[in-house]
């Protein structure tokens, strides 16, 4: 009977049941490693995240590069759209889950978000370290004939359409990753950044460095997209909780910002 039941198929996870309860695990193995019997106290969080996606441990250099990226992404800061979404949940006293759902939803998009990383990863897959291919794809971005729920890209993925010059933290991150023994992609990006910026007429952004890092570390675009989503959540969570305590009265409402250009004026209102 047991064999006839549907099962969850996975290469990631294996469990052994407790003798007294088939619904409780006595041991959990992640790609063969005993999570609670071996890995606890032995590996870092970033190594564990790597293992979950890659099913093999990272080298020390890979773990270092991955962790550096994770630190750089962990808090986009309170001006970032995704963090603002989380804070909007916070100031009104919304559920904490909704704060992270809001951060994920807003941080998922084409502008500075996870979908931009996904698309930039596709560019890396197509162009590699060939500057002529990059020039061509930036000047002639691919256009999909059929529609999708994702809006079309309105700028070169990995570059900030509203930037002036490449921000110092973006350069610091790229330089640091290169010093840490990053792969050829990041080194190539560092040496060709200004060329690419000239082609796109916009400066490199964090999402561009993130995409190059994920590409160097041999993540797929899908993996890069979803990892980027959760790596940015710690800051959203912290800022949301902070604003929850402060409340909406000390948070921008943009009182005079909305300007209706077609206000019909008072309708059937004697007091107006």
């Amino acid at each position: 009977m047991e064999n006839e039941r549907e099962k969850i198929q996975t290469q990631i996870w294996r469990e052994e049941p407790e003798p007294d309860n088939p619904f409780a695990a006595s041991a959990c193995y992640c790609s063969g490693f005993d999570v609670f019997g071996d890995l606890l106290g032995k590996i870092s969080l970033i190594e564990y995240i790597w293992l979950l996606f890659k099913l093999d441990p990272p080298t020390k250099a890979q773990a270092k590069v991955f962790e550096t990226l994770a630190i750089a992404l962990a808090n986009p800061g309170p001006r970032d759209h995704s963090v603002r979404a989380a804070m909007n949940a916070g100031v009104g006293g919304s559920t904490h889950a909704s704060a992270l759902m809001a951060a994920i939803a807003v941080g998922a998009g084409n502008l500075g978000g996870a979908r931009e990383v996904f698309t930039a990863m596709n560019y890396w897959q197509q162009c590699g370290r060939d500057i002529e291919k990059w020039k061509d794809i930036i000047e002639n971005p691919p256009i999909e004939e059929r529609t999708d729920v994702w809006p079309e890209m309105e700028h070169t993925p990995g570059f900030d359409p509203h930037g002036a010059s490449c921000p110092t933290p973006v350069k610091q991150l790229l330089d640091h990753l290169c010093k840490e023994g990053a792969g050829e992609t990041l080194k190539w990006l560092q040496s060709h950044r200004e060329n690419l910026e000239q082609f796109s007429k916009t400066p490199l952004s964090f999402s561009g460095v993130a995409a190059a890092t994920f590409f160097d570390l041999d993540f797929t675009p899908e993996q890069a997209e979803i990892i980027f989503l959760f790596l940015r959540l710690p800051g959203a969570a912290a800022h949301s909780l902070e604003q929850e305590k402060l409340g909406f009265s000390r948070y921008p409402f943009f009182h005079g910002a909305v300007k209706l250009t077609n206000d019909p004026g008072p309708v059937n209102k004697a007091d107006e």
């Binding site: 047991e2 039941r5 549907e6 099962k7 969850i8 198929q9 996975t10 290469q11 990631i12 996870w13 294996r14 469990e15 052994e16 049941p17 088939p22 619904f23 409780a24 695990a25 193995y29 790609s31 063969g32 490693f33 005993d34 071996d38 890995l39 032995k42 590996i43 099913l55 441990p57 020390k60």
Partner: peptide, 21 residues
Amino acid sequence: FPLPASRIKYTGNQSTRDWTY
């Protein structure tokens, strides 16, 4: 729809191994 541990079908390569540096 509760699932006992036996409802996970592990298809990974190695069932057990030790983490070594």
